[in-house]
Write a protein that binds this DNA or RNA. Sequence first.
DNA 1: GTAGCTGCAAACTCTTTGCAACTCT
DNA 2: AGAGTTGCAAAGAGTTTGCAGCTAC
Lengths: 135, 135
Amino acid sequence: MTELEQRCVDAGLKMTGQRRVILEVLGSAKDHPSVEDVYERAKKLDKSISIATVYRTLGLLDELDLVTRHEFQEGYSRYELNQDHHHHLVDLETGKVIEFQNEELELLKIKIAEELGYELVDHRLELYGKKLKKK
Amino acid sequence: MTELEQRCVDAGLKMTGQRRVILEVLGSAKDHPSVEDVYERAKKLDKSISIATVYRTLGLLDELDLVTRHEFQEGYSRYELNQDHHHHLVDLETGKVIEFQNEELELLKIKIAEELGYELVDHRLELYGKKLKKK
DNA sequence: GTAGCTGCAAACTCTTTGCAACTCT
DNA sequence: AGAGTTGCAAAGAGTTTGCAGCTAC
């Protein structure tokens, strides 16, 4: 049983074949797949899986905080396993998503929330840019 | 003719009664209204306005960069007139949206994009927090 | 055995669109 | 006059859900 599967079981979920497949898809994704993407990849491992199950499972995983649901102004959601904390820069010309971390930013966010009288629970930062031309 | 109306005309839009109403609603909004909100408020000024027109007009205003379309993980959009640049802190307990600005943050974002080889075109930052209890 | 899970299809929510009538300029 | 705009209703996209049968425990 993988660590991911274990965490689901610990949370009281039954470990079904479909869930194993979806976790496998998420675990091996190097990108930020949409529900449709997860569904397509899952079907390669289990032809009979339904998109309703994919939606339900991703919703559960989000509640358990095992994944993050992103909404990059596209009109649908994309999911990502929660591993290291990072943010995204979206290339406006290609749609490519680049991940980055920045310690200074983390501290600044906490400070800003504090100054407003808030405890920071969550946050989103997304940058949208165009590739700089080399001279 | 208000400045907002003038900017629409300059962009080649006809200044219809419906558009005037929608601009008026946006101009006097102190919050970040959803399409439904704008529609409800607009109806008070013009009973016959349709929600299709609200959608179309908000879409146009977004293209003209007169408004910003926000997607605060709620499953629908909220709109806001583009005035001073700022970000949002969402109170997780009340849903209240607090605006803030932070110069240090602005510089940092540009720097991060640059380091990744990108020119920053746009960005989103949202903080989600809980009110700190006073001791 | 049974609570929980699944696939299916229908329903739902938010948003967009085709069209005929209407209205700014 | 004519291009652009509107309201309406229908269609679209993404997502959720009721239900009967199935499955992990």
